[in-house]
Design a protein around this nucleic acid. Structure first.
Length: 291
DNA sequence: ATTCCAACCTGATAGC
DNA sequence: TGCTATCAGGTTGGAA
């Protein structure tokens, strides 16, 4: 689900509910694909800790704790991080929502997909992590510890330059879209924004990376920045599961030009947007505008 | 070293 | 209604 804009919006909006607060109680579900740190250990380590800061590294959220440890969270495809109380009904599926009576439609009740819940000493709003598919990750890093998942990450997509992309592409035969999705090359770009940026830059997603010109890489770097920043401004893309930490939808889905729009007319030339598969990911582009 | 692709999960939706 | 197939904002690890 979440790419750089959704993670950044989540970071900004959940930070007031985390930073400066001391954790009193921790609930987790049992060990699963989601937990890289064993839940009982995680619970022991988090209890009593104060959160000092909340940072983003690519699509990872990193909470710095007052003992030097770090709580690392990745939202995977369906992860939702939000604060209790205000967080609503939008967090549930349409079917689950329909079964609620009006008075139930305000407070969020942790369900089977709610894998982490933090209670705080101040007795204020709790913080929840919900993740239906469990592709997300939760892990606790010891003081000064490193982790391959974080070490592998390349430069943040928001600051990437055409020259960096150009150099990373030398000798690479894979599709340019796949290169953009490689988090070791740049971090933060996912399926939506790769398609959107390639559209804006006029580059066909299937083009071999080494065949993309310097000029096109400049256009791509600019397009990435524009698209990602605009999405952050609008609260991210709420297409399926994503909601902001207060339960609201983002609005960038209304500004998409190609992602999920197969068959619709290109907003620039009117040709029908096409959907193909590149590197096992659904890929959308305009056959006329993108070469 | 690079590229490809199955696997990890669960749910929604479209089509018969 | 019910079943089956396909699709989904991601990442890893192993095979070619």
């Amino acid at each position: 689900m979440p790419e750089l804009p959704e993670v950044e919006v989540t970071r900004r909006r959940i930070a007031p509910f985390l930073v400066g607060r001391r954790i009193r109680g921790v609930f987790t579900t049992s060990a699963s694909y989601l937990f890289l740190t064993d839940p009982p250990l995680l619970r022991r380590r988090l209890a009593g800790r104060r959160v000092e800061a909340l940072e983003r590294q690519g699509k990872y959220l990193v909470a710095r704790l007052d003992d030097g440890r770090r709580l690392v969270v990745h939202l995977g495809m369906t992860g939702q991080l939000f604060a209790g109380g205000a967080a609503s009904v939008r967090l549930l599926s349409a079917a689950a929502r329909a079964s609620l009576t009006p008075d139930q439609q305000h407070a969020f009740r942790p369900d089977a997909h709610t894998h982490l819940r933090l209670r705080f000493e101040d007795g204020g709003p709790q913080v929840f992590l919900r993740d239906v598919r469990k592709f997300g990750k939760v892990l606790l890093l010891e003081r000064d510890a490193s982790h391959p998942r974080l070490d592998r990450l390349g430069p943040d997509a928001l600051g990437v330059t055409g020259d960096e992309l150009f150099r990373a592409s030398r000798g690479r035969e894979l599709a340019i879209k796949s290169l953009l999705l490689d988090q070791a090359v740049i971090t933060g770009v996912g399926n939506i924004y790769a398609d959107e940026a390639l559209y804006e830059a006029g580059v066909r997603p299937t083009r071999r990376a080494r065949r993309v010109t310097r000029r096109q890489f400049e256009a791509l770097a600019t397009a990435l920045r524009r698209v990602l920043e605009r999405s952050i401004e609008t609260g991210g893309s709420s297409i399926r599961d994503y909601v902001t930490p207060d339960g609201a939808d983002g609005a960038f889905q209304d500004e998409r030009r190609v992602y999920g729009l197969a068959g619709s007319p290109c907003s620039r030339c009117g040709a029908a947007i096409r959907r193909i598969v590149v590197g096992q990911r659904g890929t959308h582009y305009c056959p006329a505008c993108q070469r």
